[in-house]
């Protein structure tokens, strides 16, 4: 575990699926968005490697909370809670 509960994070604005074959478990609507770590969920094999039957590194998985208003201008007010692997998260000051 490298990120503390309560840390502010930003989801990487990366689009590997546009570079070639890829399997991504970070939904498109969160790329580049800011959220907060609410729970550490454990370490799990990296799905981006498993999808190609390659040796998969174990990575920290976090429950990250977002505000729907930060994701869509017309969204109904809601919390959006999503599991995200650590290599997609950048800690914010």
């Amino acid at each position: 575990m490298t990120l503390d509960v309560g840390s502010r994070v930003r989801v990487d604005d990366r689009w590997p699926e546009r570079q070639g074959p890829a399997h991504i478990r970070t939904p498109h609507y969160l790329r580049g968005r800011r959220g907060k770590i609410v729970r550490y969920l454990g370490e799990f094999a990296d799905p981006e490697q498993l999808a190609f039957n390659r040796p998969a590194q174990r990575r920290a998985l976090y429950h990250v909370m977002f505000a729907s208003a930060d994701l869509w201008v017309d969204a109904e007010p809601a919390d959006i809670l999503v599991e995200i692997f650590d290599h997609w998260l950048v800690e914010e000051a």
Binding site: L81, E83, I84
Partner: peptide, 25 residues
């Protein structure tokens, strides 16, 4: 709006938390 499909209406004071199940849990 989605909950209305089921006839479910929550009080406006109830906060909704949508859980997008993306990974291992």
């Amino acid at each position: 709006a989605v909950l209305k499909s089921w006839g479910t209406a929550l009080p406006s004071t109830t906060r909704i938390r949508v859980v997008d199940s993306t990974a291992d849990y």
